[in-house]
Design a protein around this nucleic acid. Structure first.
Length: 395
RNA sequence: GGGGAGAUACCGAAGUGGCCAAACGGGGCGGAUUGUAAAUCCGCUGGCUCUGCCUACAGAGGUUCAAGUCCUCUUCUCCCCA
């Protein structure tokens, strides 16, 4: 597929579009690949399918001979982009960030080719790490309060009489500075990044560089229709197993499907519209399969689809159930549910029991004091709802 | 620097001395229904050795038989003035 077509499919906004064509032509003539920047802050342990949208576009650029410049924001993560959340997160420690950075690369590697010859990976602590206070002031002098307060998130919070801290306003400047440091030609980001991307342009211009083209991708919504975010629990992680990933996508709301087809699948426009015209259940199955295939391969996708039908449509037990080994042989049901890790407290176990959610060996139980005998040879199957299952035996 | 308002559970938000483990709404979780979609109905939503006990209404003290509610100090936020 043509790069321009892909760009069209995956972007909602392009700043500096009029120069993009020329840049492509010049890059081809000079045999000088464009530097395509994409930055991601390792604030959590998983990268999700929402992040995958710009990453897939990045991959498209890579496939067309351009150079992805992947920035792991181990410096910016310490601050945290205040986007979309009207409260501050607890600051991450250096260790958190280091741990997350490693898993991020692994997950991004499922989409992008991280071969050093084909991709430049940078950590922005490289330049933020040894800045002193006066360097930071210099950075701050690059913009103005009025300009920063134009940012949607800040504006809203100001209007709602909520706090906007000074350090939060440094975030866009940091991201912009990244662009200067890597001399980006194009920067990709989610729709909510538009302001930050603009900042890069502005700062590059001040630094005497050619301002980057800013491309934003539409935001992939979470399975519940809200913005995909780990904090909402509506995300699908790239590190999710095939079955889990398939199941999560099946729980997507019907309304969300067109956007998901557009942003997360490899299907053509025609294939998509054929799919969407059919039964929604069918369409969702294809959607889920396609996505799982991209990450886990065709075989895994097929068996995930099968396992799903077995467990949820036919209401049968799944083939692979986690096993848990406990020391005691005779335990009260409420404690057992907790010890087996199905609930976090015995109080929760009691509530579940009262609500009729619990089955022991496929038989409904409601007595928290029921004494369950475990043996080392056979297993006892504990079940809360359709999703939480575990086989228990004693050591 | 001066004046005023405020901080309640995952979120929003009631509560102005006992009937408060805290109304109500959202979210989440379970049950029914189903296409693990949507919609709808029902239940749950601090912990424990669970008909009882313990810890909680920003933090620390205090008044009281009794405090989310009153007093003092502290921390944080917002608004107005300079």
């Amino acid at each position: 597929m043509q790069l321009q077509n892909l760009v069209q499919r995956f972007t909602s906004d392009i700043v500096g579009e009029e120069h993009f064509e020329k840049m492509l032509v010049k890059s081809a003539a000079d045999k000088n690949p464009l530097r395509i920047k994409f930055g991601i802050d390792p604030t959590f342990t998983d990268v999700h399918l929402g992040h995958a949208v710009p990453i897939r576009l990045l991959r498209a650029f890579q496939d067309h001979g351009h150079l992805p410049v992947l920035i792991i924001g181990d410096g910016t993560a310490r601050l945290g982009d205040p986007t979309g959340r009207n409260e501050q997160r607890p600051p991450l420690t250096v260790d958190d960030v280091a741990r997350n950075s490693a898993t991020y690369l692994e997950q991004i590697g499922t989409i992008l080719d991280l071969d050093p010859a084909k991709c430049e990976v940078r950590h922005n602590s490289e330049w933020f790490g040894d800045m002193d206070f006066f360097d930071a002031l210099k950075l701050a002098s690059q913009s103005t309060a009025a300009r920063l307060l134009e940012r949607d998130d800040f504006k809203k919070r100001m209007q709602q009489n909520q706090a906007v801290h000074l350090h939060e306003m440094m975030y866009p400047l940091m991201q912009g500075y990244d662009s200067v440091m890597v001399e980006a030609d194009v920067e990709l980001g989610g729709n909510d990044q538009l302001f930050n991307l603009h900042m890069g342009r502005q700062m590059q211009e001040r630094a005497g560089q050619r301002p980057q083209i800013c491309m934003t991708t539409p935001l992939l919504l979470g399975t519940d229709g809200r913005k995909m975010s780990k904090t909402y629990g509506n995300h699908v992680g790239l590190n999710a197993g095939a079955n889990d990933m398939y199941g999560k996508i099946m729980s997507l709301s019907d309304d969300g499907m067109p956007l998901w087809f557009q942003l997360a699948t490899t299907l053509t426009e025609d294939e998509m519209s054929t799919c969407l015209a059919g039964h929604p259940r069918q369409a969702k199955d294809l959607l889920a399969r396609n996505i799982v295939e991209q990450i886990h391969g065709a075989d895994a996708a097929a068996s995930a689809a099968e396992a799903f039908v077995q467990q949820f449509a036919k209401n049968e037990l799944p083939d692979d159930i986690d096993e848990c080994v406990l020391a005691q042989s005779s335990v009260k049901l409420a404690s057992l549910l907790k010890d087996a890790g199905l609930v976090t407290s015995t109080s929760e176990a009691r509530r579940m029991l009262k609500g009729g959610a619990v089955k022991v060996n496929s038989e409904a139980q409601s007595d928290p004091n029921l004494l369950v005998e475990l043996s080392s040879s056979g297993v006892v199957l504990l079940q809360i709802g359709k999703r939480r299952l575990v086989n228990v035996r004693c050591s």
